[in-house]
Computed example of a mutant assay.
Amino acid sequence: MRLSARARNLTPSPTMAIDAKSKQMLADGVDVVNFSVGEPDFDTPESIKAAGIAAIQQGKTKYTPAAGTLELRKAICEKLARENGLQYTPDQIVVSNGGKQSLYNAYQVLLDPGEEVIIQAPYWVSYPEIVRLAGGVPVVVETDESTGFRMTADMIREKLTTRTRVINLNSPSNPTGAVLSRKELAEIAALAVERDLIIVTDEIYERLLYDGAEHVSIATFGEEVRKRTITVNGLSKAYSMTGWRIGYTASERIFAKAMGDLQSQSTSGPSSISQAAAVEALRGTQEPVEQMRQEFDRRRRHMMTRLNSLPGFSVKVAPEGAFYLFPNVSGLFGQTIAGRRITSSDDLAEVILERAHVAVVPGTGFGAPNYIRFSYATSMERIDEGLDRIARLLAEG
């Protein structure tokens, strides 16, 4: 039996793999502190859950248009105008089964085989694979603490070729929490116009900002920029709706129609119940979002202090968004921990899980092998418990 080359070359998501392993350990009776998962630990707000229940009771349980219900697409247009200063009509919105499918749709309709996509490293683990699945070639721009984990227009320019088609942006960033400034975005936008490039911007963490950071949608930098931008967003992070699976894109009609047509031949529209709940999320009270953001900020500051106190761990750049910390752990390479010589972040993550029963994600899958990602989307008590376990493990040598 033979699989396609596409399937043979596909790399599974390391974050999902580690989360699955930690959950299996939990099922086996092992108490694992899970810092690997990229989802809020808060429950979906009550008003949103009530809207989903009401949709079931009202019989809103049938197929919807492939691109999403008109009501939800209108609510997304209202949100984009209110919060981002972007003017779209419902026919420019495509609602999908999460932000990941929105990104998948975008690259499927944008890329021909061999065309290149500029991706900043550290990157979310799925960006390169989604590009490859569309026949594209990821071209990585390396960043680190010295650049504040920010990709600039000059750094992008050095990587451009005649095959470059798309600049992929993610601000706030997963895994670093870096937020691109207005000036940095304006320069990238000007470069895209100059070189006739498309911009795919993943803004899923836009509501989770700290230390006065400002989120700016790159599509606001003039009509020429807006026309060549596909803005990707969703409700998973801000509204703690990961399992509801609602993401969306806003773009020019030529892109929106192509993505809607693609979706009509693949998954069709998202759950009708989830879409009804999403309308309430966007139009209802935003107070729970702010409450979550404040608690994430409290955890962020606490975890950063504690990580910097661990030998061999270094967080030099405070994350300004999302809910991750990305310490450099290369100071531990070459050391022996629990009888194992550590040569990489993969080694370190494995020994931390096996011996301390704490799940973290090595930076290899993010294109940053000297780092490990910690999610602070868990309670303060579990944060302290997990870091206490790692401290004890390191002290053992």
Score class of each variant (00 low, 15 high):
Met1Trp: 03
Leu3Ser: 12
Ser4Glu: 05
Arg8Leu: 15
Asn9Cys: 14
Thr11Phe: 10
Pro12Trp: 15
Ala17Cys: 08
Ala20Asn: 08
Ser22Gly: 04
Ser22Phe: 01
Asp28Val: 07
Val30Ile: 15
Ser36Trp: 09
Pro40Tyr: 07
Lys60Val: 06
Lys62Ala: 14
Thr64Trp: 07
Gly68Ile: 10
Gly68Asn: 11
Thr69Asn: 12
Leu72Gly: 06
Leu72Val: 07
Arg73Ile: 12
Arg73Asn: 14
Ala75Tyr: 01
Glu78Thr: 13
Gln87Asp: 14
Gln87Trp: 04
Pro90Leu: 04
Asp91Ser: 04
Ile93Tyr: 04
Gly98Glu: 02
Asn105His: 14
Tyr123Lys: 00
Tyr127Ser: 04
Gly135Gln: 01
Val137Tyr: 00
Val141Arg: 08
Ser146Glu: 13
Gly148Leu: 14
Asp154His: 00
Leu160Lys: 02
Thr164Gly: 05
Ile167Lys: 05
Asn168Trp: 05
Leu169Met: 08
Ser173Met: 08
Gly177Ser: 09
Leu180Trp: 02
Leu185Ala: 06
Ala186Val: 03
Ala186Ser: 14
Ala186His: 05
Ala190Glu: 07
Arg195Thr: 03
Leu197Asp: 09
Ile199Val: 01
Val200Asp: 01
Tyr205Phe: 15
Glu206Tyr: 06
Leu209Thr: 09
Asp211Ala: 13
Gly212Pro: 11
His215Pro: 02
Ser217Arg: 03
Ile218Ser: 07
Arg228Lys: 10
Arg228Pro: 00
Thr229Gln: 00
Ile230Asp: 08
Asn233Pro: 02
Lys237Phe: 10
Tyr239Ile: 10
Gly243Trp: 12
Ala256Trp: 00
Ala256Phe: 01
Lys257Met: 12
Met259His: 01
Asp261Glu: 05
Ser266Leu: 02
Ser271Val: 08
Ala276Trp: 08
Ala278Val: 05
Gln291Asp: 07
Arg300Val: 00
Met303Leu: 11
Met304Glu: 01
Gly312Val: 04
Phe326Leu: 14
Ser330Leu: 11
Leu332Ser: 10
Gln335Met: 09
Ile337Trp: 02
Gly339Met: 10
Thr343Asp: 12
Ser345His: 02
Asp346Phe: 04
Ile352Cys: 02
Ile352Lys: 09
Ala356Ile: 01
Val361Leu: 06
Pro362Thr: 01
Ser379Leu: 01
Asp388Tyr: 12
Arg389Gly: 07
Ile390Leu: 02
Ile390Asn: 02
Arg392Asn: 08
Leu394Ile: 13
Glu396Thr: 09
